[in-house]
Amino acid sequence: MKMHVLLFLSIFVISCTPTTIPRVLDNRLPQSISVAQKQIVAVLSGHQNIPSTTLQLAARATIEERAWSRAYLESVLHQIPLTPISQSYRYRNSNPLVDLLVGPYKGTNLYVVLPATKPTKDCIVLGAHYDTARNCPGANDNASAIALLYGVAQKLNSLQQRSTNVMFVFFDQEEEELIGSKAFVNCLKEQHYNIIAAHTFDQIGWDSDNDKAFEIELPSPSLKKQYVSVAATHRVPITITRVNSTDHHSFREAGYEAVGITEGYVQGDTSPYKDTEKDIFETVNFDYLTTLTQLVYDVIKNQIQTPLSHEK
């Protein structure tokens, strides 16, 4: 019997091996936003080592890959400088019978709040997922959108006046039934912010015909008006679509105003390498990313000067 007990105990110990939390110690991004964006996409897609390590990310799918991606993103946010907050969660499977077989989803979202320059509870959420499909470097899906958020955050941070808080969120597990954003929406309900709108970004790095066209998905009327107006001033074609398969869905389902922003996904000018090993750094159109960064910045700048909640 002693042998049996020893066997069971050793199996239990092996099953509970602890994991270490990675840290990126020295990450200095270039001053130029567009150069920094290139570096962010390069590191996240494994084109470059993670700073201060010899590690290259082959994907951002496994627990370890996602932990390293978060460590790197934390170091990126410290550069702005903003203090990132981790939101670890567990989430049930979509089918209760699967609950019987395996454990719940476990993941961690990362977010920061760029505070308004005067006290207010109003807040705009800008989000992009950082995970990828298995064995996919995810340069376009979705390191490009992470880089866009970094650019927008840097630009907004340099504004003298901000009437609204802006929350930047990097979602985990979008590739697995939007679990990260669903968990984040639950967390958001417990916070004291008055969420004016949520903008989520997915695949912002493909523009084969260089027309700079982009799509907005299921926008509320006021968000649609904002994007159409700013796109017109930039002379950029915009298409409104009804695509519902990414993180903005979680916000809309919870009753928030939301919109998704992406490349020409429905129009057909979209990366053919989605969720494959070929979604690499070299396929990202950085001119397009720069254009959309400026455009999104203008939309958000307009919003934080004339918040949507005041327009209702």
Partner: peptide, 17 residues
């Protein structure tokens, strides 16, 4: 390979043990 990374993690070495 399953597309669900969550299941892949849960049914790896630890899950098999």
């Amino acid at each position: 390979p399953l597309t669900e990374n969550h299941l892949h993690e849960q049914l790896g070495i630890q899950g098999t043990i």
